[in-house]
Design a protein around this nucleic acid. Structure first.
Length: 291
DNA sequence: GCACAGGGCCAAT
DNA sequence: ATTGGCCCTGTG
């Protein structure tokens, strides 16, 4: 088929689970077996039938797949090993993995993750998606050559594009009190106070400190950026959901400080903390556990 | 109708 | 180290 790539024999890959696990915001569910994904200045449709280990990617080519999507979808990581090690930790972890065995941690754009997770604070996921859509429509570029339900799709705005926005224009996108944070991020990236591309080779701790120099970026948001953009799997982003899950499972339901939870994950999950967090987050949130 | 929380962080105690 | 407030919106 033209402009369609098919992958077969894909293990540990469920596009629904990947997209619905809270790591990515610019996608739409078309049906149970079909998702539209806006990333890398492109728009693709991914189709995967229930429990199938093959997928179709529409609107791409084999060379573009090799160049972009293979890495983005984290297909070079050996999830068999991760699943095996984590499943042996305890019965809850085993359950969480059995529930979300098709999760992968995408390799997304650092700038987009920075702004997206600044927006995420004190918002629900549907609101976050709406804000990002607003910003893209206002300040990104139209993605042409693709029509889906007569809707228009836009790239995520670059730092340069977003820097042109006034605080008022940002607030019109419903980002609220985060508008000054977004402006500070634009400033620090444009004047190279923070060079996002340099953080790939930094340790998680170094990168975290640099990111937290930006207003509105605290420990949780920095960890999300480290995990979802830079694949630093030793971090354990601790939000209200995962906090309740960890307290419920490992601390007998008792209120536990962030520091204790961080120390626990580091000690218990080690280099696989980030993956453990994704499985537990998805399991807990989808099933409304420990609410 | 209105109180509350939602993938937190900042600034003032 | 601890705590109130925050833009905005969907939910009970």
């Amino acid at each position: 088929m033209k402009n369609v790539v098919m992958l077969e024999n894909l293990k540990y890959f469920n596009i629904g689970q990947i997209l619905e696990s809270g790591q990515v915001f610019r996608f739409e569910k078309i049906s149970d077996s079909s998702y539209l994904l806006n990333a890398k200045q492109k728009l693709i449709k991914i189709i995967q039938q229930q429990d199938s280990d093959s997928i179709l990617i529409h609107n791409t080519t084999v060379s573009e797949f090799d160049e972009i999507w293979s890495s983005y979808l984290d297909l070079d990581t050996e999830y068999k090993h991760i699943v095996q090690v984590l499943s042996q930790k305890d019965e809850y972890m085993a359950k969480a993995i059995a529930f979300g065995e098709g999760i992968r941690i995408l390799r997304q754009d650092p700038w987009e993750m920075l702004i997206s997770f600044i927006i995420s604070q004190n918002k629900a996921i549907p609101q976050i998606k709406q804000c990002i859509k607003n910003l893209s429509q206002q300040f990104g570029d139209l993605i042409d050559g693709y029509e889906e339900q007569d809707k228009m799709y836009y790239t995520f705005p670059t730092a340069k594009q977003l820097a042109r926005a006034s605080e008022e224009a940002l607030r019109d996108c419903k980002v609220g009190f985060r508008a000054p944070y977004i402006m500070d991020a634009c400033q620090k990236v444009l004047n190279e106070e923070v060079i996002l591309n340099d953080l790939y080779i930094c340790t998680a701790e170094e990168a975290k400190n640099k990111l937290m120099g930006i207003k509105g970026v605290g420990p949780k948001i920095a960890d999300c950026i480290l995990l979802f953009a830079y694949s630093k799997s030793e971090v354990f982003p601790t939000d209200v959901w995962i906090k309740r899950v960890i307290e419920g499972i490992y601390f007998k339901g008792k209120e536990t400080s962030l520091k204790v939870i961080q120390d626990f994950s580091k000690q218990y999950f080690g280099e696989l903390s980030g993956y453990a967090q994704q499985y537990l987050f998805f399991y807990g949130r989808e099933n409304q556990l420990f609410k």
